[in-house]
Nucleic acid binder design. Structure first.
Lengths: 237, 237
DNA sequence: CGGTTTGTTGACATAGTTCAAACAGTGTGG
DNA sequence: CCACACTGTTTGAACTATGTCAACAAACCG
């Protein structure tokens, strides 16, 4: 129930939201320090809401440890999970000073907070900082486009395969940890819980994966999964 | 058949692709001149390919007049239309120096070319330019997220309604001009030609729209369309 | 433990696709 | 100027992937 919430004045536009700089911590250059100067660290527990869709966005964040779900609620109650963000990723804003999405911790973790106002000022003044943010936004944008393509053209199995492979890339070990529920996956891939579950079962039956337990999956036939997810551009990266 | 193509060396990352700065030409500030210094103007004819997916991205573009379709081809031949870009919008790049999508003119128009190398240099050096690009990327990102949500959760009618309303905002007159084919719309919305056509017919039957001709539509009941598209975040803007 | 949430599986409904055919608009050559 | 071919659009009918509803099983939690 941690309250990482508003404090002061809001400010124009600082476009940050979603996966950024990704695994590649490079490119931070010497401006890392400039960013660090503005940073404050916060510990979050599983289930914590870090920021809420529609609230004034005074601070933005960067994941240090853990996994955070960004989601948006549609007027009629349907939910869309925009992204799952992992260590290294920024999240936390959009244009008009309001959070675009709600961010909730899927597991205990640590996030760094940046004052949006200060960050905006820093970006306006410091080229290095501006370029970091610019590149981060660009990376996010490419990822978002790839996701749009996935959602627009791929079938359920293809989406799932792409999703699992994407997670696999972020994971060190042989088995993938899923900090998110089936519902989260469904809302991320534009599928229902049932379809996600069934597709996973089907993968298992076909020997593509092995379920260590519900939230832990081992890829036993990566090649087939890749063939299936072919079409998902995000895999290239 | 105009050849707006490669010339020289490529360069790191300059994240630009898609709708940006949108209708709002504001925010360009005094750096407009900096950008303008790098600009070259090109005339394009209907059907012209301005750049091709996968080619080295030495230049990026900004639409001055006309409408341009950005699309990506999946390995199995399916196509995804990433966006339709209109005057004011930038397009033309992604990370690793290759075009993310193919850009084709849907009608005669004019585009401004910027050397990516020079632009990158300018961004590295000139804060104002960097910030323009940063904000542009941020705006694109928000739009891309909204699109992902649309594709993930909305039904055919909802997508169509959102699409038409989106076009309406970009159009001055009472009737919407559709420079793109039904196939383009389908590949943009993740639907088939037939579904697009049927949904349009259904809208017509329900009195929501009137077809001046195939490529020209008047919204006769905007309210209902808006109610339908509710859920599409892009409308807020 | 008993209750609650989360995941799996089945039977059925349906939105959207696929296949197919008719139509309309546009351009071309005779 | 008309016949023809072409391309894009509309419409119909059958099919299928995915959603919906519902029951159950498993994991989780106090």
């Amino acid at each position: 129930m941690l309250a990482v919430q508003q404090a002061a004045t809001s400010h124009p536009m600082l476009p940050i939201m979603g996966r950024q700089l990704g695994r590649t911590t490079s490119g931070l250059g010497n401006a890392q320090s400039e960013l660090d100067r503005l940073a404050g660290t916060v510990r979050v527990a599983r289930g914590d809401t870090i920021c809420h869709e529609g609230d004034d966005a005074d601070v933005c964040f960067r994941v240090v440890a853990g996994c955070i779900r960004l989601s948006k609620l549609l007027p009629d109650g349907r939910r869309h999970v925009i992204d799952f963000v992992y260590p290294g990723d920024f999240f936390g804003l959009v244009d008009d000073g309001e959070y675009e999405a709600t961010a909730e911790a899927l597991e205990a973790g640590i996030v760094t907070r940046y004052s949006r106002r200060q960050l905006e000022v820093a970006a306006e003044r410091d080229i290095a900082t501006c370029n970091i943010l610019r590149r981060a936004a660009g990376a996010s944008l490419a990822a978002a486009h790839a996701r749009a393509t996935t959602l627009a053209r791929l079938g359920a199995a293809e989406r799932l395969a792409a999703f699992l492979l994407g997670l696999a890339k972020r994971t060190k070990g042989a088995t993938i940890m899923l900090p998110m529920s089936r519902a989260d996956i469904g809302d991320y891939l534009g599928l229902t819980i049932e379809t996600v579950s069934r597709t996973i079962s089907q993968f298992k039956a076909r020997g593509l994966i092995r379920l260590v337990d519900t939230r832990q999956i081992a890829l036993t036939n990566r090649q087939s999964l890749e063939a299936m997810a072919e079409g998902d551009i995000a895999l290239a990266a």
